[in-house]
Computed example of a mutant assay.
Amino acid sequence: MPAETVNRQWLLARRPNGQVSVEDFARHDAPMPRADLAAGEILVRNLMFGFDPAQRGWMDDAPSYLPPIMIDEVVRGSAAARVIASANPAYPEGSMVRGLFGWQDYAVAARAGDPDLVSIPEDIAPEEALGIFGAASLTAYVGMFDVGRLRAGDCVLVSGAAGAVGSVAIQIARLAGARVLGIAGGAEKCRWLVEDYGADAAIDYRCEDVRARLGALAPDGIDLFFDNVGGTILEGGIAHIARFGRIVLCGAISGYNDVRGAVGPRNLMRMISQRAEMCGFILLDHLDRVPAAMADLRQWVRGGQIHYRTDIQHGFGAVPQTFLRLFSGSNQGKQLLRIDGTE
C-alpha cells in the first residue's frame, strides 16, 4: 500500500504478566480509515501521543472504569490530532483535537459523542494539550479541590510528586496556602519538588525512611494525602494521617506490574482511630468541573505560577519503549511522543 494509505498501529499482542515489556505489543499496518463519515464523525491524523500509568491497568483482563483492551486491538491512549475530514460542525477540518485515539496514525472519532474528545484552542500547543492542560492536570485539580477539600493551612502530602499529576497537585496545594511535602524517587526529582514546584520539603523514597521523615516533617500529622503510589507509601501516609484527615486515592503505580499484588495498606485501624477518610476517584466522574479547572490552570500557567516539564520522545517505532519509561522512572516530566513520518 502507498504510505499515505497505511494506518500504522501498535496492537496489544498479549496481556502483560507482571512487568510490562516491549514484547506485549505488535506493530501492524492497516488500511487508512475511509473518509465517508457518518453524521457526527471525524477522521483525525494523530500528531503526538501522551502516556499515562493508567494504561497499564487497561491491559489486564479485569473489571475497571473502562473496558480492558482486547488482544490484537489498538492500544488505547491519548493523542493530540488534526481533523482531516469532518461530518461534525463542532470539529471542522483543520482544527486540533485531543482524545483517546489510540496508538495509530489515523482514527475515526466522535461516535456516540465520545466524551473524551476535546477541542484544542489555537493558542495551546499539542504538548500542552496532552501535558499541562491535559487529563493529568485536571485530575490533580479535581482531586485536590473536589475530592480532598483542600484548605489553606493544611499539611499536604503528595506521593509520585514529580509525575505529571503529582507535580501539579503540589503546586495547587502551595497556591492554596497549604504546607506541602512531596515524595519522589531520586535526588534530582526531589530537587525539582522544592526548587521548581515550591514544596516545603521532599522525601526520596529510594534512600530515605519515608515513615521516619514524615514523623519529623509532620509531627502534628498530615491533613490531606494525595496518593499516586499505593503499597508501602500509602501505609506510611496512613501511619501519619491527622485526626479527621483525608486521603485521596488517585493511583497505585507501585502495584501496576506486580502479579503478587501490592503490599498494604495493613494499618487501616489507624483510619478508624483518627476518624480519617479515604476516597478513590476518576476524572470521568467530574467532567462538569473541567471548564473551571481549565480557566484556573490557564491563568496559573500563563502567569508563571505553575511550572511543568515534558519529556518528548520521537518516532512511531519508539512507542512501546516510550510507554515503558513510565515504569522505570526514566521520564523527565509528562511523557509524550511526537509522531514523525515514515521510518
Rank of each mutant, 00 (worst) to 15 (best):
A3N: 14
V6Q: 09
P33W: 01
A38T: 12
M48V: 11
A54T: 14
Q55M: 15
R56T: 07
P68I: 08
I69Y: 10
A90H: 13
Y91C: 11
M96I: 09
R98C: 13
G99L: 08
G102E: 05
A107K: 05
V108P: 06
A110D: 11
G113H: 08
D114W: 12
D116N: 14
L117M: 12
I124L: 08
E128V: 08
E128L: 03
L130R: 02
L130I: 12
I132C: 03
A136Y: 11
A136P: 12
T139Q: 04
D146G: 09
D146M: 07
G148Q: 01
L150K: 02
L150N: 04
R151H: 13
V158G: 02
A162D: 02
R174H: 12
G182T: 01
E188R: 14
W192I: 02
R206K: 15
V210N: 03
R213A: 09
P219D: 02
D220H: 08
H240W: 01
I241T: 00
F244Y: 01
A252D: 11
A252Y: 09
V259W: 13
A262M: 14
A262N: 12
V263G: 13
V263T: 14
L268S: 08
M271V: 00
I272S: 10
S273Y: 15
S273W: 15
M278D: 00
G280L: 00
L284D: 15
D285V: 02
A292M: 13
R298C: 07
R298D: 07
V301P: 00
I312R: 09
Q313Y: 12
H314Q: 15
F316A: 05
G317K: 08
P320E: 09
L324Q: 01
L324R: 00
R325M: 15
L337P: 01
